[in-house]
Design a protein around this nucleic acid. Structure first.
Lengths: 151, 151
DNA sequence: CCTATAATAAGAATGATTCTCATTATTGCA
DNA sequence: TGCAATAATGAGAATCATTCTTATTATAGG
């Protein structure tokens, strides 16, 4: 299997189709956001997006990320950091979790072994049933301090 | 084992001692916050705290919850909801995770079986090492829709 | 009982995010 | 291809949870 679950060409089709299903267009700005998130390889903030492309208007970035999130293409990640982080949804990347540095706010992706992930999922399914919840997804975060911030 | 890891009497001693270690006093307001969180049995928002005791000043509640968090007595929980939720730290309650209803913002606690929790922890320890992270804690959230919001 | 120091609380300030609305782009149809 | 009709854009205003300021009040320790 190659690096990503979905090839870059397919992403455009996927994005167009998922946006269409909520009656939204796949515009130049939205295409650009997807491209930036794809290059980032880790969750990034709105400020980082604005720095990486000075053509983008802040208000449009906020609005379009919200729309991409509604379309299920992008996930917004909230931590104790002031700024939200954004990354592509798991069916575009793959299922993973986040390791978060509390001092600097950086977020990196990590993967659980298939075995533990599976055991966890089946546990969680049972728990959701017990609570009468309908589950969308789970998230697992590791909170601590990265090597750079330890010194 | 009884309902909580630490009995109510011990909490006062614990709170006093943990506050002292960061040179803070265990005042009437802070005692009251601990009591409210203990009664809540689930994570609650600042608004809910203010509603439950009209004597408390909003600014003091914010400040004191931040201090209780620094002392390691309280945990602040951030979700996609606008309002942060607060609950007592895990050495006062016990280690647990959160099931979150996206529509209404409600948060409930759940427990993983000891077996899976243990397997997960040892996995996470290895991953933290690989990343050169020093880990404080992990958190696992189940995101979905509660029974009340499904109808 | 004093005095120094910390905590309190009312309201102002901050800042990420959301909203407004006039302008610009796009789509579908003739 | 040209023309509405409709959607997207972007600049700046508004919102609102949270944090900060500061004058007042409480507390601890000699």
């Amino acid at each position: 299997m190659d690096m990503s679950t979905v090839s870059e060409i397919d992403i455009d089709q996927l994005a167009a189709s998922q946006l269409k299903s909520i009656k939204q267009r796949y515009t130049k700005n939205r295409r650009q956001l997807i491209a930036i998130l794809l290059e980032a390889t880790k969750p990034i903030t709105i400020n980082q997006i604005l720095e990486s492309d000075s053509e983008l208007a802040q208000s449009s970035v906020y609005r379009n990320l919200a729309i991409l999130e509604q379309a299920g293409l992008v996930v917004r990640i909230i931590t104790n950091d002031d700024h939200a982080h954004y990354e592509l949804a798991e069916h575009i990347l793959d299922h993973h979790h986040h390791i978060i540095c509390s001092p600097c706010g950086e977020i990196l992706d990590f993967h659980l072994s298939a075995k533990i992930e599976k055991a966890l999922e089946s546990s969680l399914k049972k728990i959701a049933d017990d609570f009468g919840f309908s589950i969308d997804r789970h998230r697992l975060d590791l909170l601590g301090t990265c090597g750079d911030c330890i010194e």
